[in-house]
């Protein structure tokens, strides 16, 4: 039995959802054109992941195997709707920017994946730590992609100019193709670092 620390840190590096498991790519590509969007999407996903992991793990002996997938989907969809409504009520501008991608957290395979592969087989506390680690890892990955794209594409970080007025924006980086370029380069770097170890 490994400690809770390992359960948490595996999400950050060795099993990082975006860079190692290559899960949840839709939001990782679609909304990472600014760091602010990345943070908001990361936090929203982390909240859903944490809640769904907790509930799925609590109910794991109660839900029959045959209906586990629909049950997980209902649980996940409920939490996503809660996040959606909450953001619309108290974080209206960012909710407007993220738009459709908040409801789309439902189909983020990272969340269903953690329910199926981890929470439905492990005790509650362990699942909470797993959800937290995966959520933080996902958020960090999104912020990394967002930072690369925003700095290269707009010359800013969190809206503050970092490359000076003389910098010509690489517009492609904040357009959809830039998401793939940034993603590919970062994945390559992660693999290179991993190979060296």
């Amino acid at each position: 039995m490994s400690g809770y620390g390992v359960e948490f840190t595996k999400g950050l590096w060795s099993e990082n959802p975006v860079f190692r498991m290559v899960l949840g790519l839709c939001p990782a590509l679609a909304v990472t054109n600014t760091v602010v969007n990345s943070i908001a999407m990361g936090l929203a996903t982390m909240f859903v992941l944490l809640c769904s992991n907790t509930v799925v793990s609590t109910l794991r002996n109660f839900i029959p195997d045959k209906v586990r997938i629909p049950s997980f989907i209902i649980i996940i969809a409920s939490f996503v709707t809660i996040v959606d409504l909450t953001m619309a009520a108290w974080a209206h501008p960012i909710h407007k920017t993220l738009g459709l991608f908040v409801p789309l957290i439902v189909v983020n395979c990272l969340i269903l994946g953690r329910s199926e592969a981890f929470a439905s087989r492990h005790p509650v506390l362990r699942s909470v730590v797993d959800g937290l680690g995966m959520g933080v890892g996902f958020t960090i990955a999104l912020i990394t992609i967002g930072a690369v794209r925003e700095i290269l594409g707009s010359g800013t970080f969190l809206g503050y100019s970092v490359l000076g007025a003389g910098y010509t924006d690489m517009l492609v980086m904040i357009l959809p193709p830039g998401a793939f370029l940034a993603m590919g380069a970062l994945l390559g770097m992660f693999n290179a670092v991993d190979h060296r170890r």
Binding site: I63, S71, I75, T81, L85, A88, A89
Partner: peptide
């Protein structure tokens, strides 16, 4: 089981909807 989960989910969402209706 599936019915119970749906019911609980529906109940929870109705509550959140009531709370957030006015702020939205």
């Amino acid at each position: 089981v599936l019915g119970a989960i749906c019911f609980a989910s529906g109940f929870g969402l109705a509550m959140v909807y009531e709370i957030t209706k006015e702020p939205i």
